[in-house]
């Protein structure tokens, strides 16, 4: 169940139905922030991609969704955190079509293209943190 707190909405990701929850929550929050139309689908899709990576590679993790304001711009930030196996070669994982999990290999690079900002930190044996932001167009 998603938990709402001062620092945003936290959705625990442990199976495929949690991906749907994270996606729906992200969409609802983005709508509150002021995003419309295809941007909502784009943010939801990006959340879906990184949530799916958690289920596929780390089995368990969480996604935190928060509204952000910086330099009078408004937007949403999505943080995906897991303590899974980590990614040995981030540069490669960010390439289109590279996958160790028999998928299209578009999750990380695709999510980066969908969002405005994308950061990834990963350490083998420790876990992975993906932070992505999308800003409202003025």
């Amino acid at each position: 169940m998603p938990v709402m707190g001062d620092d945003g909405i936290t959705v625990t990701i442990a199976n495929e139905s949690d991906i749907v929850t994270a996606r729906q929550m992200g969409r609802a929050l983005s709508e509150q922030v002021g995003f419309q139309g295809s941007d909502l689908t784009i943010i939801a899709t990006a959340i879906s991609e990184i949530a799916r990576n958690i289920v596929t590679y780390a089995q368990r993790g969480e996604i935190v969704l928060r509204p952000v304001t910086a330099n009078s711009r408004r937007g949403v930030v999505v943080v995906a955190r897991d303590d899974g196996p980590g990614i040995p070669d981030i540069a490669r994982a960010m390439q289109d079509g590279y996958s160790t999990g028999k998928t299209l290999g578009l999750g990380l690079p695709g999510a980066r293209r969908l969002m405005d900002e994308f950061e990834i930190q990963s350490e083998v044996g420790v876990g992975t943190i993906v932070t992505m932001r999308k800003w409202l167009r003025r």
């Binding site: 295809s38 784009i42 578009l106 293209r113």
Partner: peptide, 14 residues
């Protein structure tokens, strides 16, 4: 396939 989904899929690179 809705327009929104089509756009998202193209951005994703599918």
């Amino acid at each position: 396939l809705s327009g929104d989904v089509a756009q998202a899929l193209v951005s994703l690179g599918v």
